[in-house]
Design a protein around this nucleic acid. Sequence first.
DNA 1: CAGTATCCTGTCCGATACTG
DNA 2: CAGTATCGGACAGGATACTG
Lengths: 172, 172
Amino acid sequence: MMQRKSFGNMQCPIARSLERVGEWWSILILRDAFQGLTRFDEFQKSLDIAPNILSRRLNALVEGGMLERRRYTDHPPRYEYVLTERGRDFRPVLLAMLAWGNKHFTPEGKAVVVIDRKTGIEADPVLVDRASGRLLAEPDFGTAAGPAADERTRRRHAAFAVAREQNGAHHV
Amino acid sequence: MMQRKSFGNMQCPIARSLERVGEWWSILILRDAFQGLTRFDEFQKSLDIAPNILSRRLNALVEGGMLERRRYTDHPPRYEYVLTERGRDFRPVLLAMLAWGNKHFTPEGKAVVVIDRKTGIEADPVLVDRASGRLLAEPDFGTAAGPAADERTRRRHAAFAVAREQNGAHHV
DNA sequence: CAGTATCCTGTCCGATACTG
DNA sequence: CAGTATCGGACAGGATACTG
């Protein structure tokens, strides 16, 4: 009945992202890819995942454009899986999840942290606006219907859209 | 056999986060909660989700500490679901996913954007280190085994751990 | 309005065996 | 080493009916 993954308003970029990385393993595979893993059996050992499942997820990630399958030796033909630009762009999501997990699900302390590779000093990942450097926090920042929004999306974001259109200086 | 969600190295904060929000709907429900939705039927209409499934996911989110179930009227007893601090802290993940989706999966243009609510100007979400404000990008920043890392985690991050322990100024 | 109760289906995943 | 092929189980999710 469900022809393919389809969740509510498919215009939503979050829902679209989930179409690509919604499966459990996908995100962990990408995480490992950022660790530098590229080969089938590296992923398999790291994740302790059944080979058929790994194959399936890897192919899905390749098809989704997050990984590229590249032959690294000719005979026998051997392939490695490397992050594409799209895959690398997923990194902020991963780090945001890492920060969230570190804050809320590590009663025994942090097992993995983000560090400055030169100094070894731990970093504290926060999301900001690139131009202004301001923290992307409520209530200063919110979401709004974008230029390509359809009716339904626009209705969802009515309150913000108003503020945006007026482009005024009063708070909502 | 699989008693509960368990993926490879469960020390990893990303894997732990996935335990809580790994199901497809969970993230979309949180997204809607940030839109201000609080009531059962609001979620249901917005997501076009079966009521039993919504009930299941909502309860899981409450149990996981992301949402709080709060009685807002006594007779008849009515409840609303509001974000807890843990739930609100998930926002950067959502916005990072939004940014990723906007960059890669919107051939027709952006349907939803992050804006400054006062000015209506679109923001460009990027992840930085809170203290230094520096972009958390490769190769300057990476992940490393934290203080609570077990053997396996430490081995995974061997290269980075070295840099961290030496705390030196040379690059890896 | 805010769910619960049933029943059913899809598919993600695990286990295992096998191949170039 | 790098996968494919097959089988089976668990569970997320869908459809629908029903209740206070």
